[in-house]
Nucleic acid binder design. Structure first.
Length: 153
DNA sequence: GCCAACGTTGGC
DNA sequence: GCCAACGTTGGC
C-alpha cells in the first residue's frame, strides 16, 4: 500500500464533492503530464491512499483523504472530442492518458494550508513545496504522510 | 492578472 | 537532435 498526493481545483472537484457521495467512485481524469501519467499507470494501486490537495484557490492546501477504488485504465476524456481533455493523437488501441477512480475516505477536521507545509523540514523533499513544481500526481512517503496527518487533529 | 518555472512543439 | 518559441501551471 502506497501513499499519494493528487492536486485538484476545488471548483472542478473538491473534498466536499467527494464527501457528498461517499459511496461513489469518481473518475480522476485530465492528467496531461507524462511524469504524473506514469505514476498513475505504473505505480498507483487499488486501495492506495491519496491526499486531496486543493490548488488555484485561497488558501491552497490539503483537505482530506481518498482511496483508490479503481487502478489505471485509459482516460475516457482523451477520446471525447467535446472534452477539454480531448487528445486527437490518442487512439483507443494506443491510449496516451490514464485515469484512476477515487472514493471519499475522510475530510480533515483541520485543513493543512500550503504555507504550513512549506515551513516543515520533514517535507522539504516533497515536490509540492519545491519552487516552480507543477506535478499534479506525486508519491508521499510514509513519514511525510504521518507527519501531515498529525497536523490535522 | 502577473509571471516564474518548465514541459512540449516544431523549424531547421 | 538542438533549441527558441510557446503554452500551461499555480502561487502570489
Amino acid at each position: 500500500m502506497a501513499y499519494w498526493l493528487f492536486k485538484t481545483e476545488p471548483e472542478e472537484l473538491s473534498i466536499d464533492d467527494l464527501a457528498a457521495e461517499p459511496a461513489r467512485s469518481f473518475v480522476w481524469d485530465g492528467v496531461r503530464n507524462y511524469q504524473a501519467r506514469n505514476f498513475l499507470r505504473d505505480q498507483v494501486q487499488l486501495n492506495d491512499l491519496v491526499f486531496i490537495y486543493h490548488s488555484s484557490c485561497q488558501p491552497p492546501g490539503i483537505a482530506g483523504i481518498a482511496r483508490i477504488s479503481r487502478a489505471a485504465y485509459p482516460d475516457p476524456a482523451q477520446f471525447e472530442p467535446t472534452s477539454p481533455y480531448f487528445d486527437a493523437k490518442a487512439k483507443p488501441e494506443a491510449p496516451r492518458w490514464i485515469a484512476v477512480d477515487v472514493q471519499f475516505t475522510q475530510k480533515f477536521a483541520r485543513f493543512v494550508p500550503l504555507d504550513k507545509l512549506k515551513k516543515s523540514s520533514t517535507l522539504i523533499e516533497m515536490p509540492l513545496v519545491r519552487k516552480g513544481n507543477r506535478l499534479s500526481v506525486m508519491p508521499v512517503t510514509a513519514a511525510q504522510w504521518q507527519f501531515i496527518v498529525s497536523l490535522t487533529t
